[in-house]
Structure formats: C-alpha cells, structure tokens
C-alpha cells in the first residue's frame, strides 16, 4: 500500500496542527482534522501536535475523544510532538493542571522542564533510526523533559543525556517540534516505519 492511500488524522483541538498537515501533504498522504469521535472513521494513523496539553486535555474530555483515542492507539500508529508526547506518556511530573495521560508509551515526562519561553531553544541533533543515523533540527519550546524510560522503549535521539525522541511498538513521541521544520525527516521515518509497515501482515 502506498502513502497516497493513507489518511492520517491530526488532532485539531488546539495547537500547531496546521504545520503537521502541511508536512503530511508534502509527503503525499491525505490528512483529516480530528475534533469529534466521528472523525476517526477510516484513519490509518494519528498525529498529536504541539500546543497546550492542558487545553487539549480539557477539550478531549469535553468532546468525548478520550475513549476513541485510547481505542485507536491499541492498534494504530500515533506520533506525538511536545504536548502530544505529554499526552502519550505514562506519568506526568509537576502535573498541577491535572492532565490525564494515555500511558501509551512507557515514559515519564516533566512539563516545561527545560524552562519557560526565554529558555526555549533550537538545536541540530542526530537520530539513530535503527542503525541509520540522520541529522535533524529540533525546536524545544517550553518543552517536556523525559525523566524515565521503560525497558520496552527505544531511544532514537537524546539531547544532553535526556531522551528526546522515543518509540514503543507503534507509538512515536518527540519532546520537540519536527513540524516547525521544512525538513520532513521525522515524519518520513514515522510513515516508513509505522504506517507502511503495519499495512503488510
């Protein structure tokens, strides 16, 4: 099955979902904005974008998305960046606004742990895609820090000893924003490794 035949849902409650959509389109796949449970029909993968995890958490409850996302994540690939990573994690440290994570990837994260906005930064990093090494740019904006990684989680990239790109089964999570780049390296990896592989039995 080709990428052109795939429809990728983008959680569009709040945040920079438009930037993910532009990347999905550039790679030749279809996208659909997900705001209500009915939007899951026929999706092959889901992207959870950057934005405010507190806001997304509230809106997921308000519009009945928690159950459909949990269900979807049991079998289908999900890629989360920044706020998306926080929502996919097992536990959240310093979780004073009460975000309920999905626990789809066995990591703990501390919100805004790299500091408030004036400490946001942009770095060139190297990812190890199962032996294939590739450089990519990464913007960390009020970013979450991964503070614990479970045994079944593979770390694909680190920054100053903290994991920043991690995967487990069909879930990929980044503490930075690959969608802010012209470069689509990370989304290509997600497509190649999770979306297209899952099509072949």
């Amino acid at each position: 099955m080709n990428v052109q035949d795939k429809t990728v849902g983008v959680l569009a409650l709040q945040g920079d979902y438009g930037l993910h959509e532009a990347q999905i389109q550039r790679l030749g796949a279809q996208f659909r904005e997900v705001r209500l449970p009915r939007d899951f029909e026929g999706l092959d993968a889901l992207v959870m974008p950057g934005g405010e995890s507190t806001t997304m958490n509230i809106l997921m409850d308000r519009f009945g998305l928690r159950e459909p996302i949990s269900e979807f994540g049991r079998t289908k690939p999900i890629y989360g960046t920044c706020a998306g990573m926080i929502l996919l994690a097992r536990n959240i440290e310093r979780n004073q606004s009460g975000v309920k994570p999905f626990g789809m990837i066995d990591i703990d994260v501390a919100r805004n742990d790299y500091g408030r906005q004036i400490y946001s930064f942009d770095e060139e990093l190297i990812a190890d895609f199962h032996g294939e090494k590739k450089a990519f740019r990464a913007s960390f904006i009020r970013a979450p820090r991964v503070t614990r990684v479970g045994n079944d989680v593979r770390v694909l990239a680190t920054f100053r000893e903290s994991p920043v790109l991690v995967e487990q089964d069909h879930i990929l999570a980044a503490s930075f924003h690959s969608e802010l780049e012209e470069d689509t390296t990370l989304l290509e990896y997600f497509f190649r490794h999770f979306l297209l592989d899952t099509a072949t039995p």
């Binding site: 569009a12 409650l13 709040q14 945040g15 920079d16 979902y17 438009g18 930037l19 950057g50 934005g51 405010e52 806001t55 920044c82 706020a83 906005q117 946001s120 930064f121 942009d122 913007s139 960390f140 904006i141 009020r142 924003h177 802010l180």
Partner: peptide, 17 residues
C-alpha cells in the same frame, strides 16, 4: 535566526486557541 524561530514557534503553539 534560531532565536526568532523559537519566538515564532511559541506563537504557532497558541494557534487555534
């Protein structure tokens, strides 16, 4: 510049809100 990129980046994160 990187500095401007992360400033605009936060504005991007507030979109739809």
């Amino acid at each position: 510049s990187k500095e401007h990129k992360v400033k605009v980046g936060l504005a991007e994160m507030l979109k739809g809100g």
